[in-house]
Simulated assay, not measured.
Amino acid sequence: MIDHIADRRQLRKQSVVVLEHRGLHQTVDTPLASAVPKHLKGRIDLLPVDHRQSTSTSQISSPEDALSQIAGLRQQLRQKRDAAGPGNVRLVYGGMAPVPLTFLTGMMVGNEAGLTVMDWDRFAEKWREPDGEDDGDRFGVFGDEGLKDDVPEVALAVAVSYPSDADGIRATLGDMPLIRLALPTVSTTAHWSADKQSAMAKDFTDLLGDLMAKGVKRVHLFIAAPNSVVFTLGRHLDDRLHPEVLVYQYERSASPPFPWAVQMPTHGRSAAQIVRSVAIAIPSTAN
């Protein structure tokens, strides 16, 4: 009886912080809190991050305002851990938000203990964990063979759900060296294995480490991947051991197609910041 009372008291102390990240008007109505896995016990504590007031249709009209909503996220999580006590907080993350803001959120969360990452399954129409089987597909690296030592900046295109828009990257950055990290078969359903996501994160961070060793100081990052993968890649960015990273937003009808990026807070930079792109004229190849 005493043990049962103690268990109930401990359960009341436990908190499940639900970090739901929304930034797209074409999103889902089902709240993430309604899909918290049943094995996570405790009081539901909502921590919404919603950028939709900064958006116009599918575009972020004020990325600076959206960025400010994430700036204090790390401190908010720390306060919730401190309030609940050591070991009493579990974090559930899920969302549908622009790539640069999702990546930054992953970086802010980092190696948070007790983290459950969820994503929206558009075909089953529900939130779910990456609980599928690993198909064994892994990233291939392309375009790094001729990269010379001490090249200061490179573009890195990561393709999981869709092929990278190489022309759009050129229109944004010009003839900067372009390296591609791509699955052998890109698909919107290629990410439902936790083991596969872990392998993708390792390949990604290994490549960043290799580029750093070659003297690359800055990486311009273009990601075509589901939300949970983008978040996971952001979690594994090392703010000291990897190059500076700018993550770009894709808007197909914009000029250039990647009109802005978030420069991540690395190498002593205290805060992330928005960097605007300028369209670059691509010489015609016509005779």
Rank of each mutant, 00 (worst) to 15 (best):
Q249E: 12
P259V: 02
G215L: 12
P283G: 07
S164D: 01
R128T: 15
P265S: 09
R138Y: 11
I274V: 04
G168M: 02
A225H: 07
A213W: 10
D150Y: 08
S255W: 10
P184T: 02
K126Q: 15
A97V: 03
A84H: 06
L156H: 08
N88V: 00
L233T: 08
A71H: 07
D121I: 03
V16S: 07
D29M: 11
A272W: 01
V229P: 04
L77P: 06
M176P: 00
R43E: 15
D65C: 07
R252E: 09
D135E: 08
D195C: 05
P283I: 06
R90Y: 01
K80L: 09
R52M: 00
P265G: 11
A199D: 14
K202F: 10
V262T: 14
W127P: 13
T27R: 01
H39G: 03
R269M: 14
V278P: 02
D7P: 00
D238Y: 09
Y250Q: 03
R8H: 05
G72L: 06
D137C: 06
T116W: 11
R218P: 01
A279K: 10
P98N: 10
G23E: 01
R122D: 12
Q75V: 07
L208E: 10
V160N: 03
V49R: 02
R52L: 00
P256N: 02
S161L: 04
H220S: 09
A171W: 00
R122A: 13
H21M: 05
D206G: 02
P226I: 09
A279F: 03
D137Q: 15
L47S: 07
V151S: 05
V36I: 11
G95E: 08
H25W: 03
V18L: 00
D119S: 11
H236S: 09
M108T: 02
V186Y: 02
M212F: 15
R180T: 14
P48G: 05
L211R: 06
R9K: 05
A84V: 04
S193Q: 05
S255K: 14
L104K: 00
D210R: 15
L32P: 13
K217M: 10
V17G: 02
V216T: 15
G143H: 01
R180Q: 14
N111V: 04
R8A: 04
V49N: 02
H51I: 04
D65T: 15
N227Y: 13
R276Y: 14
L46H: 14
V278A: 06
R22T: 06
V230L: 09
M176S: 05
L246E: 12
P163F: 08
L46I: 12
L91W: 07
P48T: 02
G72D: 14
R128G: 14
D203F: 07
Q10K: 12
D29Y: 10
A254D: 06
H220M: 11
H39I: 07
D7F: 02
H242R: 12
D210P: 04
Q249T: 04
D134I: 01
T188N: 09
M96H: 11
S198H: 14
L233I: 10
G95N: 07
S187P: 09
Y162T: 08
A166Y: 08
P86R: 06
H191S: 14
M200E: 05
N88F: 04
